[in-house]
């Protein structure tokens, strides 16, 4: 459950941002979680639900998560294939090797505070 420690890092960052902007309440937190980040979105939301409630700054905050799709580049013909799951074989050339493409990062996009 490294999602918990990532949520802790996020809450720390929110506290810093609130202090910088002189705000006392976080309304919404928008995140982008890449398809190859190794982070389970459900677990991240679960962790946020628990930990955010412990701090008055974030106790009513709403978490919005965007998850961009994964895509795969065929090692045979080089075409890009957009699929959630790794394809069995390339629809263009029947190659079975693919390089995964897509973000492996977790990005804090924006925060709404008051």
């Amino acid at each position: 459950m490294h999602e918990m420690s990532l949520v802790q890092g996020l809450l720390g960052q929110l506290q810093q941002l609130a202090a910088e902007h002189n705000k006392s309440k976080v309304l919404t937190v928008s995140m982008e979680i890449g398809p190859f980040s190794g982070v389970v979105i459900d677990s991240f939301e679960f962790g946020f639900g628990i930990l955010a409630k412990e701090i008055s700054l974030t106790k009513d905050a709403r978490l919005i998560i965007e998850s961009p799709p994964a895509s795969y580049r065929c090692c045979g013909c080089g075409k890009q294939i957009e699929e959630e799951q790794r394809p069995e074989s390339c629809p263009h050339c029947s190659e079975t090797l693919f390089s995964p493409e897509g973000s492996d990062d977790l990005i804090l996009l924006r925060v709404e505070m008051e």
């Binding site: 890092g9 960052q13 902007h21 804090l108 996009l109």
Partner: peptide, 20 residues
Amino acid sequence: KPAHSHDSKVVEVHQSLLAA
């Protein structure tokens, strides 16, 4: 309640949680 506000501000961050 409580998700609307009268003096809210949106801060664009665009930074990785893994940046540190």
